[in-house]
Design a protein around this nucleic acid. Structure first.
Lengths: 163, 163
DNA sequence: CCTGATCATGTTGATATCAACCTATCTTGT
DNA sequence: ACAAGATAGGTTGATATCAACATGATCAGG
């Protein structure tokens, strides 16, 4: 109903003001740069740190599970693991029960690096929280969006017949 | 004060729950995929669409200004312009007043593509808004964060002496 | 057992992303 | 006019990112 008038084509300012995607990219890039810098002493990018964290649970996730956790493509995870494996921080085991499944896990060295980097992460995150001033609602909103847009952890349900 | 106890190293779940950077990446990736798909009929990625939009003002921005607008590195803009220039959608002019400055601008073809893609963008964005249900505060929060983390448009001030 | 469908992952090719370095241009002080 | 510093941009090398396709493993019927 409300879209009976496509009116004019989207203007530059409309996109700049409205586009969630644009703002999400802006935020993502700004934060990535920030944490990249904080983690540089440990030779990890923010993305690598997130990936290592995703592997750090008691039971190593499969590649697909890790991808889901990070809301990235499976093939991106495969690619991202390579530099880490080359450095001996992760090891990609095959699942004994299912030959298709791979379970990348942290090595001892990987655990050590992650532990040190984790301390730097916390310092950087505390600084960020401080800099954002009073507990803004922004972080919570970001997490909500994150969950809404790409729920994780639940058994995937295929596109059902429901419209 | 509150950091007298570094206590344990950050756990996986602490990072997963707290890390703004991780959630920002998740949101950015999910939205990028979404708009990539919406714009695919026009052979534009969400990033290319944003870049074209940034160039679409009356006075074409410099490379640095465009980078600032998108919160990306200058060299990323340079790289991102290449595929677009190759396809004849943008043209990189030199500023007549300052030989260092380049001003990438849309060609006629670029304008046409952007107009068509803009219509698709609006449809996709309307659908997204609808899907996010009631006017959540998330979008506003995202925009706030975006501005806080990487203000744009204002004359850059170098790191002041304030501690 | 086969055979086809399904599933997990890997590979390829294109683009995106950034830091570090490099070059060309402008500006300022002399 | 010249040299020194600042500024704008590009180049290089590494990694990240995804879609599309390809491979190999498992599973369900027969």
């Amino acid at each position: 109903m409300s879209k009976a008038l496509p009116s004019a084509l989207p203007s530059a300012s409309e996109v700049r003001d409205r586009c969630l995607c644009l703002h999400a990219q802006r935020v993502a890039r700004a934060l990535a740069r920030r944490f990249d810098e904080a983690l540089r002493p440990h030779d990890l990018t923010s993305g690598q740190f997130s990936l290592l964290t995703a592997l750090s649970g008691p039971q190593p996730p499969t590649v697909s599970e890790a991808a889901d956790l990070l809301a990235m493509d499976r093939s991106t995870v495969t690619a991202a693991l390579k530099p880490l494996a080359r450095r001996g921080l992760v090891l990609v085991d095959s699942d004994p029960a299912d030959g298709r499944v791979k379970r990348p896990r942290l090595t001892e060295a990987g655990c050590a690096v992650l532990a040190r980097a984790g301390a730097a992460w916390r310092i950087a995150h505390d600084a960020l929280d401080r800099e954002l001033g009073a507990p803004t609602e922004a972080p919570a909103a970001l997490r909500t969006l994150s969950t809404r847009l790409h729920p994780h952890g639940q058994p995937r349900m295929k596109a059902s017949s429901a419209s």
